[in-house]
């Protein structure tokens, strides 16, 4: 057990090291000299050589790549993600200020997805190959195929502009959260519905469900007490693994609803070529993504003892 944990930790560290190296290396993909490009876009005119030289000196860009990387990584490990090229505020505080809005959106979207997906997936499995099943599968297919920025605008059009039920954009109240959460949650719901359906179909055919039925337990009780509880185990892990989906979606959904958050911070920084912010946000999201996946893996083992015994693949 301890050996397995150490192996896992070793592998996790090597992945995180690779992640940090690639994250820091992004800046060097810039065609030409990053300092020149940044200054040219900042001033909308070609900078002089002395301006480029002073920018390079100010931000430590004259050092060899490895020296820059190690210095950045050392600071990052101590919680210091550096300072923006344009704002005096530290990136750590910018990330920490944006994080709550994105987390709020992520949690609300997850709640929306579960509220939609669990009943739909269960109904679909219980009424397999009927019109209910087909309708639910078509809904899931449309949900997974819809561009979230488009859905966002449709919801804005109907709920905000036509009906006046919710604010058009921003943050602060529950009303501000409803449409972004539905926009982001519906895509997730489509994926979770498929998982719930598949998982329920597997469980419904299990012996213990047959046993419960043969003992005369009512069908509804069999479905919700015996089957659903076990069918939800893979769902828990899938919801955890959806973290990447949430972050991807947040980038777009925050732009649609003009919500300040990690996504908005990243997109603005990409356009401004504010690389320290880009590096900081990408590093934080990638680490959160990797750690969540590991936690989900461990949770799966804890929730389903058969995994540890090797009875399930």
């Amino acid at each position: 057990m301890l050996r397995a944990l150490l192996v896992r930790l070793g592998s996790l560290s090597s992945v995180l090291l690779g992640v940090s190296l690639i994250t820091y290396g992004f800046m060097f993909l810039t065609p030409g000299d990053p300092a020149y490009t940044i200054l040219r876009e900042q001033r909308q005119s070609p900078p002089s050589e002395s301006q480029v030289a002073s920018f390079r000196a100010e931000h430590g860009l004259d050092d060899p790549f490895l020296v820059q990387y190690v210095s950045w990584l050392t600071d990052a490990l101590q919680g210091d993600l550096g300072t923006s090229y344009y704002q005096s505020e530290s990136i750590t505080s910018l990330v920490l200020a944006s994080l709550p809005n994105t987390l709020e959106l992520a949690l609300a979207a997850t709640a929306v997805s579960l509220v939609l997906a669990v009943p739909l997936g269960v109904l679909s499995a219980v009424h397999r190959d009927t019109w209910i099943d087909r309708t639910s599968q078509i809904a899931a297919l449309i949900g997974v195929s819809m561009p979230n920025f488009w859905l966002g605008y449709l919801l804005l059009l109907v709920c905000s502009l036509w009906l006046g039920l919710t604010p058009v954009g921003g943050v602060g109240t529950f009303g501000h959260l409803v449409l972004p959460a539905i926009t982001l949650g519906s895509g997730m719901a489509a994926i979770v519905t498929r998982i719930v359906r598949t998982s329920m179909l597997e469980v419904i055919e299990a012996d213990y469900v047959d046993t419960a039925r043969s003992k005369g337990v009512r069908n509804r009780l069999v479905i919700y007490k015996h089957a659903l509880r076990n069918a939800l185990i893979p769902v828990v892990t899938i919801v955890g693994l959806q973290f990447g989906f949430v972050i991807n979606g947040a980038v777009i959904v925050e732009a649609v609803f003009q919500r300040p958050g990690l996504g908005t911070l990243l997109v603005d920084a990409v356009f401004a070529r504010d690389y320290p912010i880009v590096q900081g946000v990408v590093l934080v999201t990638a680490i959160a993504f990797v750690v969540t996946n590991q936690v989900v893996d461990l949770a799966y083992v804890a929730l389903d003892p058969r995994v540890e015994r090797g009875e399930r693949s």
């Binding site: 992945v15 995180l16 690779g18 992640v19 690639i22 992004f26 800046m27 993909l29 810039t30 065609p31 973290f243 990447g244 989906f245 972050i247 991807n248 980038v251 777009i252 990243l266 997109v267 990409v270 356009f271 070529r273 690389y275 880009v278 990408v282 999201t285 990638a286 993504f289 990797v290």
Partner: peptide, 16 residues
């Protein structure tokens, strides 16, 4: 380890 769209967004943004 990277959320796909985030990585693509950064690469496309840095390249122009």
């Amino acid at each position: 380890a990277f959320p796909g769209l985030v990585l693509a967004l950064v690469i496309a943004g840095v390249l122009g």
